[in-house]
């Protein structure tokens, strides 16, 4: 079984629209939306939820005023300044370390586990999908990402599905690390701008740090052909395969407004559809995805 994680570093490069288009072009796969903080894939795939489960993240401290003697020991131990002078825990600031709970001489601090979100197993017109919703202002997104990736793997194994297509989150922090560790390959969707290049380099460094092979796709390449050329050169120097270049095309947004994938959008330019389909074939046949994990050891790349 293989897992392709589609990431971008920078948001708004067209990652989710492309993930959905690839889902429509692929077969025998499981879909996973690991962008749990701002999940959008469901807006194009209209999943029918079959199973819904609460996500219990960390715990948060809560002081029972009736039992508190106001000794101040908890405030001394809290490194996150989460306890006010009148002994109330600010749930947004609380890191859930539980140190105050251990040290309170009166055992006056509760530490209930928090429901931090929900995750779902669903059916879509393009196969099974695992997705989630992290609660507003919640932590532990990395833990939730790991959990749904594991579910996607289990479903793939049980049903003999050979590929997991994962829509990853933006950035390079904990949810991204949780999305890519142990994946077969990552596909980075980059747009040709100074920030696109900058963010691509950081996310490529991150993937290399975890020794995961990287593929690059340039989206809206014609918005800045010079920058697209620079990205191509830098990727080439780093030995990264460019799987394709997609021109700017309003069809992506129009399909999104209709709640469908690009491949289902009737007015889409046939050349664009052919291009996206060719790119998907290139990805499927790429060395990064075809090689076995063991012999795809990458050097640490700094491009």
């Amino acid at each position: 079984m293989k897992e392709l994680v589609i990431i971008s570093g920078k948001g708004g490069t067209g990652k989710t629209s492309l993930t959905a288009a690839f889902a429509a072009l692929s077969s025998n796969h499981v879909l996973c939306d690991a962008d749990v903080d701002a999940a959008d894939l469901h807006l194009l795939l209209a999943p029918q939820i079959k199973q819904q489960t609460d996500f219990i993240g960390g715990s948060i401290a809560s002081i029972r005023p009736a039992d508190c003697t106001r000794c101040g020991i908890c405030i001394e131990h809290c490194r996150f300044s989460a306890i006010s002078d009148d002994f109330v825990v600010n749930s947004i600031d609380c890191e859930g370390c539980g140190v105050c709970v251990t040290f309170c001489p009166e055992q006056a601090i509760d530490f209930p586990p928090q429901k931090c979100g929900e995750w779902y197993i669903s059916d879509t017109r393009f196969g099974p999908m695992v997705h989630a919703r992290l609660g507003i202002a919640e932590e532990n997104s990395g833990k939730l990402v790991s959990l749904i990736r594991k579910q996607a793997r289990d479903i793939a194994e049980e049903n003999g599905r050979e590929l997991i297509i994962t829509d990853g989150p933006p950035g390079i922090g904990c949810p991204v690390i949780a999305s890519i560790t142990g994946a077969t390959a990552v596909l980075v969707i980059v747009e040709p701008s100074v920030s696109g290049l900058h963010d691509m380099q950081r996310v490529v460094d991150l993937a290399s740090h975890f020794r995961i092979p990287v593929l690059i796709c340039i989206n809206k390449f014609d918005l800045n052909p010079d920058m697209s050329a620079t990205i191509t050169t830098k990727a080439g120097q780093a030995g990264l395969q460019i799987v394709g270049r997609i021109p700017f095309n309003p069809a992506f947004t129009k399909a999104m407004v209709e709640g469908i994938t690009l491949t289902e959008y009737r007015q889409a330019d046939p050349d664009l559809l052919t291009l996206v389909s060719t790119i998907w074939q290139t990805i499927v046949q790429s060395d990064a995805l075809q090689k076995k994990q063991a012999d795809s050891i990458l050097p640490i790349i700094n491009i």
């Binding site: 959008d40 992290l134 932590e139 933006p170």
Partner: peptide, 26 residues
């Protein structure tokens, strides 16, 4: 971007949040 701990840490205690968006379903 987002709504989890990084975004919260950047926004909390500020006097105004200017939210930049685009008029698409996402």
């Amino acid at each position: 971007p987002g709504t989890s701990c990084p975004a919260i840490n950047a926004m909390k205690g500020t006097d105004f949040v200017l939210m930049v968006t685009e008029p698409t379903p996402f």
